[in-house]
Each structure stands twice: as C-alpha cells, then as structure tokens.
Amino acid sequence: MIALVLRRLLQSALVLLVMSLLVFVAVYAIGDPIALLVDPQADQHDVARVRASLGLDAPWWAQYGYFLVAAGRGDLGQSFIHGEPAIRLVLERMPATLELASAALLIALFAGVPLGLWAGLRPNSISARLVNGLSLLGFSLPTFWVGMMLIMLFAVGLGWLPTGGRGPTEPVFGVPLSITGIAGWRHLLLPAATLALFKWSLLLRLTAGATREAMRQDYVRFARARGLSPARIVGVHVLKNILIPIVTVSGLEFGSLIAFAVVTETVFAWPGMGKLLIDSIAVLDRPVVVAYLLITVALFVAINLVVDLLYALLDPRVRFGSTA
C-alpha cells in the first residue's frame, strides 16, 4: 500500500515535470506577451526594460530553469497581467470549478445509475430503448451547443434561471461556496446539467451494460434459486458488483469533468479555473497557464490514487502488496 502511494508520487512528479516543460515551450512559441500588453506608445527602451523586469529577455531554456528553481520552492511565478502569484489566482478559482464538477457528477450519478439499472434489467422494453436513445443524444450533442440552448430556453425564453455567473458565496470551512443558498443553486443548475450530460450518458450506458451482464451471472441464478427477493438481488448483490466499474469511471471522469469545465465555464461565464485558463491564454499569461495545468494534473493524479484505494475497499479480490 505504501509502496503503491510512493510509486504513484514518483510517477506524478515525472508527469508534472514533462507537462511543465511542454506547456512552457508551447506558450513561449505562441508569441510575446509584451507585444500584447505594453502600451502602444511605449518606446523600444521601455519595452526592453519591461521584458527584463519580467525575466522575458533570457532564452527559453534559461527562463524554464529559473521557473523550475522557483517551483521547487513552491513559487509558480507571478501573473504578468494580474501582478499576483499565479498559484493563488488558480486556487482562488478552484472552489467554483470543483463545485460545478461535483454538482455535475452528482447529477450524472443520480440520474444515470438508476436509469441504467432500469434499462439493464429490461433491455427489450420500449422505455429502455427510449432511455438508450436519449443517452445517444447526450453523447453526440456538443456541450457548447447544449449550454447555449439551455440558456436560450430557461434563461432568455422562460426567464426562470439566470443566464450565467455564480451566485453569492459564503465561506464553508474557509472555502467560498455558492451552494449554501437558493440563488447559488439557481446559478449552478444549468451549467452543472450541461456539464453532466455527457457523463450521464456514459454512466447510464455503463450501468445498463454491467447490469445486463451481472443478471446472467451464476450468483444471480443461485440467489434466485435460494428464493431471495428480486429487490434484494438487484439492490445488494448486483449493485455491489456493478459498483466497481461505476466508481472507477466516475473517479476517472471527475478529472475530465474538471478539464471539460473549460467549455461550460466559458458558455455560462462561470468564474472557475477553466475560464481563467482561457482568459490567460488569450493574453499569453504564461505563469497562470502553467500553474493551472500543473494543478490540474496534480488533481488528476490524486483522484486516480483515491480511485485505486476505493477499488480495494469495494472489491476484496484487489489487495495491494500481495506478491502472488
């Protein structure tokens, strides 16, 4: 168990290093932030002075070297345009994104798993086919379009919900969250539903498939033969078995929810990390772009680790450290 965690940490350090190099070089190659930000009337001397004071006059490998040294101390640099530590800007936005991604995952789970079970238990019924058809739509419609349509319908057309933005926040254990009030939920509903749609389809399909397969397994037949009630068979034995892939996928997909949130946050003007990333790329604010990606990668790695550990809890066959 400890070996697994250690191995994972080593791997993730390597991933972070490679990642930072790639992003650094990519943003460097796009262009010169000073050309975008400096006042048009500034003369070449001013430009040179600004470039030197931001450390942009050194060759890229030297800049990367400075970055690594500072990163070793936990300093990912200062945002060019905000003039504040990049890491702080990203962390400041993180609760909004996590809130959105968590809400989306919950919607996907609570709407996807029961429907999937239903469809899996009665694979040939009309309702199951209908559910399957809906999930196909969920797979194929682009998030951007779905978001716009929801806004046009529920916000512009019917006026029930706000078009975007985040509701008022209240600190919960020091973290500003908007889900403590009605206004917060009103703002959260549309973006979370938009973000959830794809995952909802995925979980629905997965649950339906796993259920169908589980129902054909011997243990289900034996349980029936023993005279257990159908509710107990499905609710305890089948669910316990299909939960393993569902937990794995949910865990892994939570990472991609955070990443996909970039599009949803843009459509709904949701002040999360993804919107910060888009705005920062537009002005080549490299420290923020690098900090965002490093933090997201770290988050991914942590989630994967948690999924692995959960796996062991759910499936007694998986045990760490066994050498058999």
């Binding site: 932030p33 000073i34 930000l37 400096v38 004071s53 931001l54 200062q78 345009i81």
Partner: peptide
C-alpha cells in the same frame, strides 16, 4: 517595476 504595460510612456 513588475508591470507588463507600465504608464511610464506618459
């Protein structure tokens, strides 16, 4: 001095 676009030209 850490401004990417200072007002110093004015």
């Amino acid at each position: 001095t850490n401004s990417p676009g200072p007002f110093t030209s004015y």
